[in-house]
Amino acid sequence: MTSPVPLVDLDPWFHGTEGDRAGVAVRIDEALRDSGFLLITGHGVPRRLRDDTRALARRFFALPEAVKAKYTVAVGGRGWLPPGAEANGYAEGTETPPDLKESYSVGADSAVGDPEVDAFWFQRNVWPDEVPELAAAANEYMLRMRILSNELLRIFARALELPDTHFTRHTGHPTYTFNINWYPPMTRVGAPAADQFRIGPHTDFGTVTVLDRQAGVGGLQVCTADGRWADAPFDPEAFTVNIGDLMARWTGDRWRSTRHRVLPPDASAPDEDLVSLIFFYETDHDARISSLAPPLGHHRYPDVIASEYLKEKLDAITVTNP
């Protein structure tokens, strides 16, 4: 049976011949057309940085709730998203219980000089005093993720036989978010409600998502092209990569923005807790996104401004208390 998430080694892209680079681009085009997801190795991001960032985040999530509450924010803010803040299923128009997770959220914070834009898209990052080392680790991680994401966008352009800068010319001053998600164990959150997940079924919103995850019973599933839910394969050295709605729109639906979910905690592993490092990359806030015309693209969508399009998506998943 073909894996729902193919594996692509990027080492030939970085160190191979032009023929090797072309081969990587072809494999990525195939993966994004068929799956919308792929695993990448050969990316050059050190294991130490991933492990250190996760360990420091665990120290924060282990703090008493009253301490974490000092950093509480809503979706789109910089700080702690407490339990009950998000229900990703809402993005599909499905009313579901809140997702069974907590997050620490940071992101792009280099202001563009427009107060209205900066107030949402380039907010100052807030770091917990109780874990002072987290700031340095997360900032280094975000820098490595931005470099990797731009390289992926160059590979994407090569896969479409477009100039290498076709996408990255729109990422000179990009928006991005780094969410560190903690999925608590069942022993802490109790049995899930009906249709409740660690993250409910949804598609991502931006251009490319780079995920460093842990294997678990209550782990990642992707929806295959024929509508089946399948466990995503795991490789400890690999990042899991997928595209979001903005990139699917940009390519005229040549590539799939694939539904996925994170299963709830399971009674077979009541003590399982997982930490995922999720980098959501986008574009310049004012980038105008125009769909690729046929034969590359399959559908022509009206142009959108990236930040306006993404803000609507973020608003849809925010749980508001009556």
Results as ranks from 00 to 15, higher is better:
125 N>T: 11
93 G>K: 15
93 G>I: 14
123 Q>K: 14
119 A>M: 11
132 P>M: 01
137 A>V: 02
120 F>R: 06
97 P>F: 08
106 V>I: 14
116 E>P: 14
108 A>R: 11
141 Y>G: 11
135 A>K: 14
94 T>A: 13
113 G>H: 00
107 G>F: 01
96 T>Q: 02
121 W>Q: 10
140 E>G: 07
103 S>V: 06
109 D>M: 09
139 N>L: 09
111 A>I: 10
136 A>N: 04
105 S>Y: 04
95 E>D: 05
100 L>K: 08
120 F>K: 10
116 E>V: 13
103 S>Q: 04
134 L>P: 09
135 A>Q: 12
139 N>I: 05
136 A>L: 10
103 S>F: 02
107 G>T: 07
128 P>S: 03
137 A>Q: 01
118 D>H: 04
115 P>M: 01
140 E>P: 12
119 A>I: 11
122 F>S: 06
95 E>R: 14
141 Y>M: 15
121 W>S: 08
94 T>S: 13
126 V>T: 10
114 D>T: 07
127 W>M: 13
97 P>Y: 06
129 D>G: 13
113 G>K: 03
101 K>L: 09
99 D>W: 04
127 W>D: 12
102 E>T: 12
140 E>R: 15
101 K>Q: 11
131 V>E: 03
106 V>M: 11
135 A>H: 06
139 N>H: 07
107 G>W: 00
117 V>I: 14
139 N>K: 15
130 E>Y: 01
104 Y>R: 13
98 P>D: 00
126 V>S: 05
101 K>P: 14
118 D>C: 07
110 S>K: 12
108 A>H: 05
94 T>E: 14
107 G>R: 04
116 E>Q: 10
113 G>L: 00
129 D>I: 10
133 E>G: 03
116 E>R: 14
128 P>V: 04
106 V>R: 13
135 A>R: 15
126 V>I: 11
102 E>N: 13
139 N>M: 11
105 S>K: 08
102 E>Y: 07
115 P>G: 00
139 N>P: 00
141 Y>I: 09
114 D>H: 08
123 Q>N: 05
125 N>D: 02
109 D>I: 08
139 N>E: 07
134 L>K: 05
132 P>F: 01
131 V>S: 09
139 N>C: 09
94 T>V: 15
94 T>Y: 11
138 A>P: 08
99 D>P: 06
117 V>E: 01
140 E>Y: 02
129 D>C: 11
93 G>A: 12
93 G>F: 12
129 D>N: 13
111 A>R: 14
128 P>I: 01
125 N>S: 12
108 A>Q: 07
110 S>N: 05
137 A>E: 02
104 Y>K: 12
129 D>K: 13
135 A>G: 05
126 V>W: 02
137 A>D: 01
96 T>W: 04
124 R>F: 06
107 G>N: 09
107 G>D: 04
129 D>H: 10
99 D>A: 03
98 P>E: 00
113 G>Y: 00
110 S>I: 08
124 R>K: 15
138 A>G: 06
113 G>R: 03
132 P>E: 02
121 W>D: 07
98 P>F: 01
120 F>M: 10
